[in-house]
Design a protein around this nucleic acid. Structure first.
Lengths: 355, 355
DNA sequence: AAACCTCGATAGAGCGCTCTCACGGCATGC
DNA sequence: GCATGCCGTGAGAGCGCTCTATCGAGGTTT
């Protein structure tokens, strides 16, 4: 084998090669490969055989260049609140949270029918945000799915300003018109309050999420408002960071300040687990002495004993809907109806053992 | 503004535009944008200003087309064992496992210096494997990081056969020469055995992972061999699926068959948590009546009480090393030293409360 | 002073694909 | 019988970039 043929064998087949083998033009092969439009059946067959014979695989860079479509979407985790972008512990924490895994799972489900795959990006500081922006503007991805945590996260606005298709998990800042999916957090928290009240709890407390996170605020407010309606206007709370360790610290504080507690509502399951651990250590039985309700119905809810009573958030379905909205927007010929779409999901109460 | 100028403004600036503004050639602008080689400082400055003025962003499809580099790597989760690819529960389970999150975190760390981002792919059936293969052959990614679970997973071999750069998490089948990172699972299991023995446990059992997973086999074998060396050749075990629920079932079975148990080694932390839950339910104190050791030192280890004594697997560091190996291979000019590289990490014992 | 380098910049080919436009052949309408 | 329309195919431009070959200017060598 000469040097020439070897290098020829090395480089993979192109449309040109297939066309030559099939005895047709490049354009015809292209038509067969993509949406088959007006090509005689017998020629289609010939082309297909030529593709087989040459082992042809379309080059996506070339295709993207002319179609101006990347055929990819970015999945951005934004604003983790890591102070330092080298803070691997913080990064691991967010990716280890069951919430993240459920989002990934839902996104994958939503993308699968279209044969797309998400590019994972972390935008936890200005530099990371710049990277996401550049990535999209360079055409590496056609749109972004953003899981943003902080309310003041500027990324959604930046993306929207650049005219890039975005869908958010969670409500964006009021002034930013961006498509998103969300959960009725108020209602979820009220469900928890009602259940605790019905059990007879009158001295409840809340382990809240970071006040910078809108969903966390809504859960706290929703719970307090529901209790107020029942004549209990004073519900103490401690703020934590959505982690188990944070939940432990918050529970410890709460117990010290309010030893008479008989019910706890945690803004997510991880913190509820932390609460459970501390209650056990301090010799309080759950749900006998203190009833505990979590939020999310993630895998953490059934990870320990007692099994956690919790408010279910259909994260997978929400993530799937998020990709659907994005893909719809990409398909649409740009102009018409470019307004932001939003879909709000309803939470539900899942009663197990802890309350 | 006329229709023409508007559409001109719409489409983003190209190299040509920048060159015109800067009064130089396309090639010079290209040199400035990329590795700056032999360009007079003042011209560099002029070009930079022109880039600024035009808001130029390089088009990566065009670049990829000529460089034949995608500037992306695939992160493939392969062989989850989901029977049905529509089995969302199974999919969520794998992504919810802290192990996955740690891998993602490590990969991100390894990719960050190069400004790359992983494309997430799930290859849980033949169709998924085909997609991964096609994706890489189309040049969408330059290489793959594969987290493969089953020993008989054909994907690594398929990729290697196609000459695509791959690095595996975990040892591949014996006959497949593929770069990988791995943990000394035998040694880790022996560490667990030694610790239990030193505590006085003589009636231990193992909650093993799926026998199709090489790492699971090694952990079981390592534990049994270590116990055998100490004169305890009979260590019962129950096989589970690396999930908490599976751990619970295995523990229940083990307890029924061997009520006299005084020590349990679980092949991962999730199953150890399951064991803890069952032991509590059955009124056995941990570590008083039964000592428990997990494996991984994931977030699950500190998720409940008692805190789990476990064998630490440095997943983040392993994942980071995995990307380093892949990127090194991509940089190298192909031919020389194309042999498979492997790096084996050492586990360590982390003593907490459960043993 | 002529020949030779060297360095910085340009011209232009070409990566592999899609898509518009033109064209030939055939059926249809008057 | 000739104009008309449609359908299937081919020719060719061009997407935005990189990179090789080339050229010109200025300095050095003999």
């Amino acid at each position: 084998m000469t040097e020439v043929t070897r290098s020829a064998a090395r480089r993979s087949a192109t449309l040109e090669d297939v066309a030559r083998v099939a005895g047709v033009s490049r354009a015809t092969v292209s038509r067969v490969i993509n949406g088959v439009r007006n090509v005689a059946p017998e020629i289609q067959e010939t082309v297909r055989q030529a593709v087989e014979a040459t082992g042809y695989v379309p080059n996506s860079a070339a295709r993207s260049l002319v179609t101006r479509r990347a055929g990819a979407v970015a999945l951005v985790v934004s604003g983790t609140g890591a102070r330092d972008s080298d803070d691997e512990a913080a990064r691991t924490r967010i990716f280890t949270d069951p919430f993240f895994g459920r989002v990934v799972s839902g996104v994958l489900s939503g993308l699968r029918p279209k044969g797309l795959h998400p590019v994972l990006m972390l935008a936890d500081d200005a530099d990371g945000r710049e990277q996401v922006l550049a990535f999209l503007r360079q055409g590496n991805a056609d749109g972004a799915l953003v899981v943003s945590t902080h309310a003041e996260d500027p990324l959604p606005a930046q993306l929207a300003r650049n005219g890039l298709p975005v869908v958010l998990f969670g409500r964006p800042q009021p002034r930013v018109p961006v498509s998103h999916v969300d959960l009725a957090n108020h209602e979820g928290a009220a469900l928890a309050a009602d259940h605790l009240f019905a059990r007879g709890c009158r001295r409840t407390a809340v382990i809240a999420g970071p006040s910078a996170v809108p969903a966390a605020r809504e859960r706290l407010d929703g719970f307090r408002e529901a209790m107020k309606r029942r004549g209990l206007p004073d519900v103490p709370h401690a703020e934590a960071d959505f982690t188990q360790a944070g939940g432990e610290r918050a529970m410890t504080r709460l117990l010290a300040d309010h030893p008479e507690l008989d019910g706890v509502f945690a803004a997510n399951d991880l913190m509820a687990q932390g609460a459970l651990a501390i209650l056990r250590e301090q010799g309080r039985s759950v749900p006998g002495d203190v009833a505990v309700i979590g939020f999310d119905d993630s895998s953490a809810a059934t990870a320990g004993r007692p099994l956690l009573t919790t408010i279910r958030q259909p994260v997978e379905a929400m993530a799937e809907e998020m990709t659907r909205i994005l893909l719809d927007g990409l398909d649409r010929p740009d102009r018409p109806d470019r307004r932001a779409v939003s879909v709000v999901f309803e939470p539900s109460l899942v009663v197990r053992q802890s309350a």
